[in-house]
């Protein structure tokens, strides 16, 4: 795509809008955004948060102008302060196209800023390209089931980039002597941030850093060959495997629904484990599905899993037709028992 943005009719004035992490650094998503911007040509950089100007120095060095808001009130993720900072940075920059990483912090604040600026916004962007003389943002619709492109004429246009969609380049320390312009913004927030906590499910929550995503389907709670259900065995097989393999645990919606409605089924599963549908679409390198029938919405949650295997009793289930790399037609109760023994 390169310089075409600058040559086209639009002549977009691009701003990369970042925030610092709790430790004052720029996160991976921010660096992904910077490398995307660098591929587009010239841009301005704006950073909000604690140590914003220090972070600006660590950023990749092709920004033409750098704006910062760095007062203490902007150190914590909070909609009122973050949206005010974003609004001021965008307004000051005069940008027509704003690229920002899709962190939880910006996802909360940037739509608010867009509304106040009279601008427009698109989120979860996984691509950005020039078609004819217009820019098009690529994103998913209907929970990752339909992919589409969006074109707009409003301005400023804030495009929130989906983490993981672009490659982050390692930051090269800034060589140029561009002065960082610090902006002052008075705020009086009504919200205090008290910190973060781990969810009750602890290590079993979907963890993006694990190499393997293990998904337990509703089949674990079904009556087995003997006509009985075996909840305790199912829970033991699943939890043992998660513990021993250090994998991330996901689940299908039907199983999560069963587990959260007061039934003694698999109480350690919560909606935070849900993959697909209203759940997450994790991006693990490998995924192992057990006792999941391959219905379409469930498979949606696997779209970004690179290597997929499934253990399932039905050789004709949806997994068998182009969704998994390998489908083992076998009883997951037996396979996982053996696998857990091997992991000792």
């Amino acid at each position: 795509m390169d310089q075409r943005l600058m040559q086209g009719k639009h002549m977009e004035k691009i701003l990369v809008l970042l925030h610092t992490e709790a430790d004052g650094s720029l996160g991976r998503a921010a660096r992904e955004c910077l490398s995307l911007a660098a591929s587009l040509g010239k841009y301005d950089l704006a950073i909000s948060g604690a140590d914003a100007s220090a972070a600006a120095n660590s950023a990749e060095g092709s920004a033409e102008r750098i704006l910062c808001i760095a007062a203490d009130e902007f150190a914590v993720p909070r909609s009122s302060t973050d949206s005010a900072a974003a609004e001021m940075l965008i307004r000051t920059s005069g940008a027509t196209l704003v690229l920002a990483p899709g962190t939880s912090r910006w996802s909360r604040a940037l739509p608010m800023a867009a509304a106040r600026l009279g601008g427009v916004i698109d989120t979860h962007a996984v691509g950005l390209e020039v078609v004819g003389d217009s820019i098009q943002v690529k994103r998913w619709f209907y929970r990752q089931r339909i992919e589409g492109t969006v074109a707009r004429s409003g301005s400023p246009w804030i495009v929130v980039i989906e983490p993981g969609a672009f490659t982050a380049t390692e930051a090269t320390p800034r060589q140029a002597t561009i002065e960082t312009q610090s902006l002052e913004l008075a705020v009086s927030p009504r919200t205090t941030v008290e910190g973060t906590i781990s969810t009750a499910a602890g290590e079993q929550t979907i963890r993006p850093d694990a190499a393997l995503l293990f998904v337990a389907g509703a089949g674990w709670t079904k009556k087995q060959k003997d006509g009985q259900v075996h909840f305790a065995d199912a829970a033991d097989r699943i939890q043992t495997f998660v513990h021993k393999s250090k994998c991330s645990l996901g689940s299908s919606k039907s199983l999560v629904d069963l587990s959260s409605e007061g039934e003694a089924v698999l109480p350690f599963l919560t909606h935070l484990h849900q993959v697909g549908q209203t759940g997450s679409t994790p991006r693990h390198r490998k995924g192992l599905a057990t006792c999941c029938h391959g219905e379409e919405p469930h498979v949606v949650g696997w779209r970004f899993i690179n290597e997929r295997r499934a253990v399932n009793l039905d050789p004709n289930c949806g997994w068998a037709r182009g969704k998994a790399d390998v489908l083992y037609v076998a009883d997951a109760f037996e396979v996982m028992k053996e696998l857990n023994a091997l992991l000792d």
Binding site: G148, V150, G322, A324, L327
Partner: peptide, 17 residues
């Protein structure tokens, strides 16, 4: 000021063993 010029189903078919 808004359009969706393209919308398609993702084509992801694997050779399942």
């Amino acid at each position: 000021g808004f359009s969706v010029p393209q919308a398609t189903l993702p084509a992801q078919q694997r050779q399942t063993q």
